[in-house]
Structures are given as structure tokens and as C-alpha cells.
């Protein structure tokens, strides 16, 4: 049956497991092993290139030999499940977090998460950000009941490591990597503005406020929640920044349950 043959062939392409098909294929010259091996090489090389393009900073940090060896293990464990390769690599950050050879680079998985957030932002749906003056039209006493619709390209990301800084110093225009203090946490957002992916650091309070908003809390609830743990939250500044980044597509009044 064709389906069984296709399962066996996929096992060759992904894992170079040729045993099941050796008796069914023919080589005009040379060996069937050599012929089948071409499909394995093509598959691994092309998928490794896809991952390298999606995770250029991870690739730069670990170097080519490490990346190629790591990719081979990843591809076999997590082959693509869709024929749209711009979606391939979603599982890599988690994989890196549990990949023993990467243990000495505990920030690597979070750097990969940042790179994947950039990919998702790049390919997200096109939507116009909300007009900031829309908020000014809401009566002040109603402001606390405002809920925001998020832009499809908005991604939030936080880490115990300075991943935004690590990302920045690993861009191609940095020849010399300056010393980094790996001991501080960073959090922020990734967005797409005017067809360009941007990322922005947020202070902890602003980040927690935005995180609450993304879970569906209204403005007043999110602000009250931040006030519990922080004294340096500035709602005006945070709103100004997020509206300027185009993080929201709409604001509407919700009725708060008591």
C-alpha cells in the first residue's frame, strides 16, 4: 500500500532509517543506500537552513557546528507538521531549554523565544492600530472600565536574563561583543510597525500591567493589580508608550462584575 511506503520513506528523510525500503528501490549504478541517503541529506540540510534563518542570533551564539548538530536532533524529534515553513521552529525554544549540550547557556532558550516572537510578529495579520484620540473621547469616570483589543502582532516576552541586550549585541553590525551583565532580568514587547518588527524593553510594572490587559482585564483592574506589588507604575506613561507602539487596535467599555 502506498501509505506504508510513504511512512517508510518519511522515516528515511527525517531519520535516515533505511532498512524498510532497501529491498523496494533500485539503483542504476552504485547502491540503494547511497540513493536513499540523498533524500535524508536534502531534508535535513533544507530544514536546518530554515531554522538558521528563523534563529540567527541563536545560530551566532552557538556557532555553526553546534547549530547544525542541534538542528539534526531537533528535526528528528520535532519534524514540521505543516507545509508552511515560516511556522517551523515554534518548538525550538522549549527544546533548547531541555537540550543538555546547551546547559552552559541558560539564556539560550529565552533568546530563541524572543526570535520566535519576532517571526510571529512578522507574519501576523495586518491590522490598523487604534487612534490614540479614541481614549480622550471616553469620559474620565469610565476609563477604569476600558478594555483593549490587542494587535495580532503584539508579543510579550520576559526572561531572568538580559535577552534584549543579548539580541542587540549579536546583530551583524556588532563586531566586538561588549561585556554583558548576565545577572539581570529583562521584559518587553515585540510588535510590527509599518511592516518592520520592533522590540521594546518595558519596566517590570508596565510589563505586568500589559500582561494583565492581555488576559482580558480592564484598565482599572490591571492598574489595581500592579499597585499591589509596585510603587513606580505610571499609567499615563505606559498608555502613551503602548499607544505609540500600536499595541492596541481598539478600546471599548466593559461592565465590571462586582
Amino acid at each position: 500500500m502506498l501509505h506504508d511506503l510513504q511512512k517508510d520513506f518519511a522515516a528515511i528523510a527525517l531519520s535516515n532509517n533505511k532498512a524498510a525500503l532497501l529491498g523496494r528501490v533500485q539503483a542504476a549504478r552504485g547502491t540503494p543506500e547511497r540513493r536513499l541517503g540523498v533524500y535524508h541529506t536534502n531534508t535535513i540540510v533544507s530544514l536546518t537552513d530554515v531554522l538558521k534563518a528563523a534563529f540567527p542570533v541563536v545560530a551566532r551564539i552557538v556557532g555553526d557546528r553546534f547549530f547544525v548538530a542541534m538542528a539534526k536532533v531537533f528535526i528528528e524529534a520535532h519534524p514540521p507538521t505543516q507545509p508552511t515553513l515560516f511556522r517551523y521552529g515554534h518548538d525550538l525554544p522549549k527544546f533548547l531549554g531541555a537540550f543538555p549540550p546547551a546547559k552552559s547557556m541558560p539564556y539560550l532558550a529565552d533568546v530563541a523565544r524572543l526570535e520566535w516572537a519576532r517571526i510571529e510578529a512578522y507574519f501576523a495579520e495586518d491590522r490598523a492600530p487604534m487612534d490614540p484620540t479614541q481614549l480622550a473621547e471616553i469620559a474620565p469616570e469610565m476609563l477604569s472600565q476600558v478594555s483593549f483589543s490587542l494587535h495580532p502582532a503584539l508579543r510579550l516576552i520576559d526572561s531572568a536574563f538580559p535577552i534584549f541586550e543579548i539580541w542587540a549585541v549579536n546583530q551583524a553590525d556588532h563586531d566586538v561583543i561588549p561585556g554583558i551583565d548576565f545577572g539581570h532580568a529583562e521584559c518587553g514587547l515585540v510588535m510590527r510597525r509599518d511592516q518592520t518588527v520592533v522590540q521594546r524593553l518595558l519596566n517590570e510594572a508596565a510589563y505586568q500591567w500589559l500582561r494583565s490587559i492581555t488576559t482580558g482585564l480592564a484598565l482599572g483592574e490591571a492598574t489595581a493589580l500592579v499597585a499591589v506589588g509596585s510603587t513606580n507604575f505610571d499609567l499615563q506613561d505606559t498608555l502613551h508608550l503602548l499607544l505609540a507602539e500600536g499595541a492596541f487596535t481598539d478600546a471599548h467599555i466593559v461592565s465590571i462584575k462586582n
Partner: peptide, 17 residues
Amino acid sequence: SFSVVDGVYVNDLLPLP
């Protein structure tokens, strides 16, 4: 050619009998 089997996508144009 084929490239999908059991929901896995192989990024190559695999041959058919």
C-alpha cells in the same frame, strides 16, 4: 511527488512508485 504522511511534512519532493 509527495511530502506529507500522517500529518508530518517532509521538506523535500519525495518520489512515487
